[in-house]
């Protein structure tokens, strides 16, 4: 169980009152949904809260191929018979961990429904194949993250799933705050961090006009890390902020120009 504990305090810069509100939700063991674009600090927030509450954290990165068994558990074939292996969700429910299903919409909808019984007052998890009904540990809590920015209407949470969660709306932090985050996370000077944020803003302005998502805080952290290691700021920006997000020549040229106009 200590495998899942977070020993060192993760750096987390609150954007508002989310820390206190999360504590309240946890105290009532309410399921939590953290909404927001990729790389805006959702996972970091959950990690930080697990540390602050002193609870183990089990994270599952969801994907399209995932089935209910991948969450719940399955029988394994072995040379001398079969053996049941708990999935991460079951483990979390047993040991009283916070179970974090990252990017839940990536999973198919028939997969996501297995979490429903854990989210209402019963707090149970039926293991149909094993014939067991797991009663969740009192410390157990379910957290999901969800990026509502997907433009595909095909990938969305069912209303019946959404209705089971309390939610936090995250977004990329305001410029001053994001500057602080970059500086504290990487040790980069505030002035340079502010310039990175400026470039990030330019990218975000193109969201919906050729870019599906803007430039994330995560990518800004990458750029800051590179600069901190002595890479030229313009190279770092091109490499961490522009090349990863687009192959569109016009957008590249525009963002490259924004970089050259910002770092002189």
């Amino acid at each position: 169980m200590s495998d899942y504990c977070i020993l060192e305090e993760p750096f987390y810069q609150p954007q508002g009152r989310e820390v206190g509100l999360y504590e309240a939700a946890y105290a009532a063991r309410l399921p939590v949904m953290v909404k927001g674009p990729t790389g805006c600090g959702k996972s970091r927030f959950v990690e930080y809260m697990a540390w602050k509450l002193g609870k183990p954290l089990i994270t599952v990165a969801c994907n399209e191929d995932m089935t209910a068994s991948d969450l719940v558990g399955r029988y394994l074939l072995e040379a001398n018979g079969t053996r049941w292996l708990d999935g991460p969700l079951t483990t979390a429910a047993r040991i009283g961990a916070i179970c974090y299903l990252d990017e839940i919409v990536e999973a198919r909808q028939d997969t996501t429904v297995v979490i429903h019984p854990l989210t209402d007052h019963r707090r149970t998890l039926p293991l149909d194949k094993k014939g067991e009904l797991v009663q969740a540990h009192p410390d157990f809590q379910l957290v999901i993250s969800y990026n509502p920015g997907y433009q595909s209407l095909m990938k969305d949470l069912k209303q019946s799933t959404k209705q089971r969660f309390t939610a936090f709306d995250f977004d990329y932090p305001a410029p001053e705050l994001e500057t602080t985050i970059l500086a504290k996370e990487t040790g980069l000077a505030e002035g340079t961090a502010a310039k990175l944020v400026k470039v990030g803003q330019a990218g975000r302005n193109l969201k919906g006009h050729g870019l599906d998502e803007g430039i994330s805080t995560r990518l800004l952290v990458y750029a800051a890390t590179l600069i901190k290691r002595g890479v030229d700021a313009r190279d770092a920006c091109r490499m961490a902020l522009v090349r990863p997000i687009t192959d569109d020549a016009d957008i590249r040229a525009t963002l490259d120009h924004a970089i050259d106009s910002t770092f002189v």
Partner: peptide, 13 residues
């Protein structure tokens, strides 16, 4: 033309 529209939008909103 497209690059210029992108420029206007990205840098100057």
């Amino acid at each position: 033309e497209r690059q210029l529209s992108l420029y206007l939008r990205a840098l100057w909103r």
